[in-house]
Design a protein around this nucleic acid. Structure first.
Lengths: 160, 160
DNA sequence: CTCCTTCACTTGCCTTGACAAGTATTTTCA
DNA sequence: TGAAAATACTTGTCAAGGCAAGTGAAGGAG
């Protein structure tokens, strides 16, 4: 992480290849996930993530602000998704008894059922697109590198 | 790439970590790039990519359909961006003499100037967020893994 | 106790992007 | 040769998401 890393205003050839591949992945991968979920389950990748995160929480219940953070979402975006989910009885909302400013969201039975229905094909798609092309060693390396980048981007998003 | 890879309907713990990091990167990284470019240059990451791809082409000229493909874009999306660019004299459009169905886009001087102005801070941001956190070996591994995933996703997008 | 600030969430306006239909040009084939 | 199909791009319509302003609740100063 010396000076050279940020000094030259251009990327060298090897960096260009990495960068182009990363651009393709960050653009085309979410689109591919959205297509599969939209086709098979009628929900977006983001909506799936909201259901999945809620399902993993204690009592299947979270504060909306926490849910927004783990879903990499803004509050207005999550708010509108929760409107749709509540209309379909996939979740319930109620004020947090311990602090009326917070809102607690709980995954309802119909929402859990939707998630369980959607999961197998979605997980299979993730494995096809991300895990199957890689060896076990490549997966380890990829995980390590992405974890570092994700941490850096998170710092930038929150603090910067 | 044995049966186990696609058979079980769930991800194991190591896969979960990789997957969560990848989700963060594909969502938060484009957002961080957009913020920087919007703030410093008044353009989106996608618009920067269009200018950059055009600038690298022979004679700074490409068919719109080719440009859309290398930018991972649909045709309507690119069409509207070209409307804005043409209004600012950043590009010119004309029918391809060899086949009037194609449209050739050429980067104009003002467009190249905008790109050159915007590039240093943008490239620095890319280096900060993506390259600086990694060792040289990690960069090689990441590039190899992403190239494989990108190829798989591209096949899915085009053929599937 | 009252007012002000802070905090969490929601609402309204606007831009962006996707999909489908429309237009213009070239190719195909009877 | 002339109508039909294919190709490349543009336009129209609609939903999704970002930002700023609005609402309601909790803490703090006077």
């Amino acid at each position: 992480m010396g000076l050279m890393d940020t000094q030259s205003p251009w990327l060298d050839d090897g960096q260009q290849d990495l960068w182009q591949a990363l651009l393709t992945v960050v653009i085309a991968l979410p689109a591919a996930l959205d297509r599969q979920l939209q086709r098979d389950a009628g929900i977006s990748n983001f909506e799936y993530g909201v259901l999945a995160q809620l399902s993993m929480a204690d009592e299947a219940t979270m504060r909306l602000s926490d849910l927004a953070r783990v879903c990499d979402s803004t509050q207005p975006r999550l708010s509108k998704v929760m409107d749709r989910f509540e209309a379909r009885d996939w979740v319930t909302r109620r004020p947090d008894p311990s602090d009326g400013r917070y809102t607690l969201a709980t995954l309802a039975d119909a929402g859990r059922q939707k998630l369980v229905e959607s999961a197998p094909e979605h997980v299979a798609q993730v494995k096809r697109l991300v895990f199957d092309p890689l060896s076990a060693a490549q997966r380890r390396h990829l995980g390590a590198a992405l974890t570092r980048i994700a941490a850096t981007v998170r710092r930038e998003t929150e603090g910067g």
